[in-house]
Structure formats: structure tokens, C-alpha cells
Amino acid sequence: MLAFVLRRLAQSVAVLLTVGVVAFFMFRYVGDPINAMVGQDTSLQERDELRQKLGLNDPAPIQFLRFIGNAAQGKFGLSYRTSEPVGRMILERMPATLELSFCAAMFSLLVGVPMGVYTGLYPRHWSSKLLQAVSLIGVSLPTFLVGILLILVFAVFLRLLPSFGRGETVDIGWWSTNFLTTKGLLALIMPSITLGLFQLTLIMRLVRSEMLEVMRTDFIKFARARGLSNRAINFGHALKNTLVPVITIAGLQLGAIIAFAVVTETVFAWPGMGQLFIQSVQFADIPVMAAYLMLIAFLFVVINVIVDLLYFLVDPRLRSQGGAARVSGH
């Protein structure tokens, strides 16, 4: 188990270093950072001085090490656009994105898993077929369209929900939260649905097909022969056996939700990291883009490690590998 954790950590570091290389090359060689920072009328000499001061004349490996060292401390330099420290800009935007992603993930799990269980248990019922059809639409509609349709119906026609922004937020230390005001909570609804809808349908379909498979296994047949109640069979024996693939996909999708928050944040003018990223792209604000890239990679790696640890909780066969020996005998 310890060996496994160490191996996973080594892999994670390797992944982060690789992303670091990509981010560094973006940072250093896509466009000229000096051009981005100074005005049209800056003289060549002033440009060279600035170049020297920022260390842009040092050999590439030195620059890379400096970049990684700073990144590890959360220092990503100054934004080309606002001249603010990039680390602080991202930190300010992070609560908005993480809260939105959390709600979207909860929405997709809390609705997707029961829907998957239901359609898996009663595949022939008309309501299951309806859910299946609706979920197909859910997978094929582009996110921005879903967002715009929701805004049209609930903000423009019905005037029930706000169409943009976070509503009211409360600051707890540096973290600003939506969860403590009604307006903040209302503002979360449509963006969360928009962001989580694709994952909801994905999880529903996954749980459904896993349930169908598990229900055919011998141990479910034997559980029936033992006279266990339907509840114990469906939600105990069957659902638990679908968990390993569901945890895998849910983990990966949580990463995807955070990364794809970009689109939703743009549609709903949600002041999160994704919106910041789009603004940076428009201004070729490379430091912000590089930092965002590394942060997303970091989140992916963390989620993956958590997923691996969850496997151990769910599946005793993994836990005892190399542990208790298989006892034979007749």
C-alpha cells in the first residue's frame, strides 16, 4: 500500500513537471512578453533593460528552473494586462469557480446516480426509455446553448433567476462564498445546471449500464435465492459493485467540470478563473494562462490520487493484495 502511494506520488510529480515544461514554453516563447508589457512608443533600449531585469536573457534551463521554483510557491509573475501578481488574481477568482464546480458535480451525482439506478433496474419501463432519450439530448446539446436556453426561460421570460454574476457573496477570510445568502444561492442554480448537465447524463448512462451488467451476475441471482429484500439487493449488493467505475469517471469528470467551467462562466458572466482565463487569452496574457494551466493540472492530479485511494475503501480485493494470503484448503 505504501509502495503504491509512493509510486502514485512520483507519477503525479512527473505529470506536473511535464505540464510545467509546456507552461514554461508558452510563457517564454509564445509571443514576446516584453511587447505585451510595454507601449508602442517604448524605445529599444528601454526594452532591453526590461528584458535584462526580468531575466529573459538567461539560458533556457535556468529560466525553467526559476519558473518551476516560483510556480511551486504560487508565484507566476505579473499579469501583462493588469500588472498585478498572477497568483493573487487567480486566488481571488478561485472560490467562484470551485463553488460553481462543486455544485455542478453534486447536481450531476445526486441526480445522475439515482436516474442511472432507476433506468438500470427497470430498463423496459417507458419512463426509463424517456430518460434515456432525454439524456441523449443532454449529451448532444452544446453547453453554451443550454446556458442560453436556461437564461431565456428562467431569467428573461419567467424572471425567476438572475442571468449573470454571483449575486451576493460573503467573505470568509480570503474566500468569498455564495452559500450564505439567498441571492448567492439563486445565482448558483442555472450555472450549476448548465455546467453539470453533460456530466449528469454521462454518469446516468454509466451507472445504468453497470447496473444492467451487475444485475445479471450470479451473486445477485444468489442474493435473490437467499430471499434478501429488493432494497438490500439493489442499493446494497448491486449499487456497491457499480461504484469502482463510477468513482473513476466521477473523478475524471470533476476535473473536466473545473476545466470546462470556462464556457459556463463566460455565458453567465461568472467571475471565476475560467472567465479570467478567457480574458487572458484575448490579451495574450501568457503568465495568467500558464498559471491557470498548471493549476488545472494540479487539480487533476490531486483528484486522481483521491480516486485511487477510494478504490481501496470500496474493493477489498485491492486492499489485501500482498496482504492476507489466499487460504486454500478443501
Binding site: 451476475t217 450470479d218 451473486f219 442474493a223 456497491k240 459493485n241 470500496v314 477489498p316 480485493r317
Partner: peptide, 9 residues
Amino acid sequence: LTSLNPLYS
């Protein structure tokens, strides 16, 4: 081999 649920003791 397949009659018992692998995830329960």
C-alpha cells in the same frame, strides 16, 4: 466463485 458478492465479507 461467482455466487458470493466480492465486496462484502
